[in-house]
């Protein structure tokens, strides 16, 4: 028994027919065909499937479709602003934050949310925030550097915005 679920995905009104037990991760990947969100473990232990659900980062592998009525969902595909990279994406490119890249979408979503809460973090703050996102390639060093650089860029932009006011 499928039901029609309506929600917003990356800013667009979306409507899908899916059973209530379908996981958000599978809904995105298999039903909608948006595969940027990755499956690493399926049990909430690796963070590769991190998406924004109603403004907060969550593991999409643990969210049932039944809950999604009127939800606001943002995935890695929604990060870019038109043709421009989000500063987090730009920093991951410049600093070598991605190797195999499989954990990267989840890392980006988590890092974005974290910097919204804490625009001027220490390296340890970043490590704490990203501890639910496993990476097997990088040893996290370049990821932490990238998040720091993105934070600096976001602060610079925020400062500029204030200057204009």
């Amino acid at each position: 028994m499928s039901q029609t679920i309506e929600f917003t995905l990356n800013g667009k009104a979306t409507s899908v027919d899916a059973p209530a037990h379908r996981l958000l991760l599978d809904l995105l990947r298999d039903e909608i065909g948006v595969t940027g969100t990755k499956e690493g473990c399926g049990t909430g232990d690796c963070g590769a499937c991190t998406v924004y659900l109603n403004g907060k980062p969550v593991n999409s592998c643990l969210v049932l479709t039944g809950e999604l009525g009127d939800a606001d969902i943002v995935t890695v595909e929604g990060l870019k602003d038109g043709d421009a990279y989000h500063p987090i994406q730009a920093a991951f490119i410049a600093d070598g934050g991605a190797q195999c890249g499989y954990c990267t979408p989840g890392m980006l979503m988590m890092a974005k949310s974290f910097l919204e809460e804490n625009p001027d973090p220490t390296d340890d703050d970043i490590r704490f925030a990203l501890s639910g996102n496993l990476c097997r390639c990088t040893g996290y060093v370049k990821i932490v550097e990238a998040v720091q650089d993105a934070a600096a860029e976001l602060r610079r932009r925020a400062g500029k915005g204030q200057d204009h006011e």
């Binding site: 909430g44 991190t50 907060k56 980062p57 969550v58 593991n59 643990l62 988590m110 501890s131 639910g132």
Partner: peptide, 9 residues
């Protein structure tokens, strides 16, 4: 408990 993602849920 778990990660921020887990604790958000």
């Amino acid at each position: 408990v778990g990660s921020i993602q887990i604790r958000n849920r």
